[in-house]
C-alpha cells in the first residue's frame, strides 16, 4: 500500500510538470504578452524595453526553465502583472472558496445520487426508476450556465428565497453548489443504479439471502459496498470536470473562487496567475484520482493486492 501511494505520487508530479510545460507554451502561442499588457498605442521602443525588463526577449525555453525553476525551488510563481502581488497570495485567497463549493457539490450530488440509485435498482422499472432516469437525462443534457441562470431567476428573482451572488453566508452557497451538483448527479445516480443491478445478480447476494440476511442488509452491506467501487473511482475522475464546472458556475454566481480568477486573468493577460491556476487545477485532478484509488483499495481487497 505504501509503495503504491509513493509510486502514484511520483507519477502525479511528473504529470504536473508536463502540464506546466504545455500550458506555458500554449500561453505564449496565444499572444505576445507584451502586446496584451501594454496599451495599443505603445511605441516599438517601449515594447522592446518592456520585453527586456520582463525577460520576454529571451528564448521561450529559457523563460520556461527560469519559471519552473523558481516554482520548484522557491515555490515562487512570480507576481501578478495586474495586481502586482505574488501570484501564490492571490491563489491562497481564492482556494478556500473553490474547495468549499466543489466539496459541497460532491456532497450534495452523492447524498442524492446514492440513495436514488439504490432505490432505482431495487425497484427497477418502477415509477421512481423511470422518473429518476428522466431527471438524469435532463440533468445530463442541461448546460451548466443555463441551469445556473434558471435557478437565479426562479429562486433569486421570482421567489426571492436565496441570494444570487457573492459568498458571505451559507445561503449564498446553496445555488452555486446545487448547480454544480446537478452536473455530477445524473452520472453518479446512473452509475450507482447500474452497479447495484450488476451486483444484485451476483451469486454472493444469493448466499447472503440464504444466510438469512434481511433486504436492507443485503442492499447496503452486501451489494452497495461492491457497487461503490466504480462510484469512488469516477468521483475522483470527476474532479477535472468539476474544476472546469467551477469556471462557469463561479462566473455566473460571482463566487470569489479560482474559476472566476482564472477567467478574469485570461481576459486581462495576467499570465503568471493563469499559469499557477492551471498547475493548481492539474494538481487537484491528480490528487483527486490518487485519493479515489486509495479509497477504492481500502474498500476492495483485490485492488489492494495488485
Amino acid at each position: 500500500m505504501k509503495t503504491f501511494i509513493i509510486k502514484r505520487l511520483i507519477q502525479a508530479l511528473a504529470v504536473c510538470l508536463v502540464i506546466s510545460m504545455i500550458s506555458f507554451f500554449l500561453l505564449f502561442l496565444n499572444a505576445d504578452p507584451a502586446l496584451v499588457l501594454l496599451p495599443p498605442e505603445a511605441e516599438v521602443e517601449d515594447i522592446a524595453a518592456f520585453k527586456k525588463q520582463m525577460g520576454f526577449d529571451r528564448p521561450i525555453i529559457v523563460q520556461y526553465l527560469d519559471f519552473i525553476g523558481k516554482v520548484i525551488f522557491h515555490a515562487d510563481f512570480g507576481n501578478s502583472f495586474v495586481a502586482k502581488v505574488p501570484t501564490l497570495k492571490l491563489l491562497a485567497e481564492r482556494v478556500p472558496a473553490t474547495l468549499k463549493l466543489t466539496a459541497s457539490a460532491v456532497l450534495i450530488a452523492n447524498l442524492i445520487a446514492i440513495p436514488l440509485g439504490i432505490l432505482a435498482a431495487v425497484r427497477r422499472y418502477s415509477l421512481l426508476d423511470n422518473l429518476s432516469t428522466l431527471i438524469a437525462l435532463m440533468g445530463q443534457a442541461m448546460p451548466l450556465y443555463w441551469l445556473g441562470i434558471m435557478l437565479i431567476i426562479v429562486f433569486g428573482v421570482w421567489l426571492g428565497w436565496l441570494p444570487i451572488s457573492g459568498s458571505q453566508t451559507l445561503p449564498h452557497l446553496i445555488l452555486p453548489a446545487v448547480t454544480l451538483a446537478a452536473y455530477l448527479l445524473p452520472a453518479n445516480m446512473r452509475l450507482v443504479r447500474s452497479g447495484m443491478l450488476d451486483v444484485l445478480n451476483q451469486d454472493y447476494i444469493r448466499t447472503a439471502r440464504a444466510k438469512g440476511a434481511g433486504e436492507i442488509r443485503v442492499f447496503i452491506v452486501h451489494a452497495f459496498k461492491n457497487a461503490a467501487i466504480p462510484l469512488v473511482i469516477i468521483t475522483g475522475l470527476q474532479f477535472s470536470i468539476l474544476l472546469g464546472g467551477t469556471v462557469v458556475t463561479e462566473t455566473v454566481f460571482a463566487w470569489p473562487g479560482l474559476g472566476r480568477l482564472a477567467v478574469n486573468s485570461i481576459l486581462m493577460g495576467d499570465y503568471p496567475v493563469v499559469q499557477a491556476i492551471v498547475i493548481f487545477f492539474s494538481l487537484c485532478v491528480v490528487i483527486g484520482n490518487l485519493l479515489a484509488d486509495i479509497l477504492a483499495a481500502f474498500i476492495d481487497p483485490r485492488i489492494r493486492q495488485e
Partner: peptide
C-alpha cells in the same frame, strides 16, 4: 435450513 451452492468461486462476497 441452510444451502450451499455450485460456484464456490463467486458465492462469497469479495469485499469481506
Amino acid at each position: 435450513m441452510a444451502m450451499i451452492f455450485q460456484e464456490p468461486m463467486t458465492s462469497l462476497n469479495p469485499v469481506y
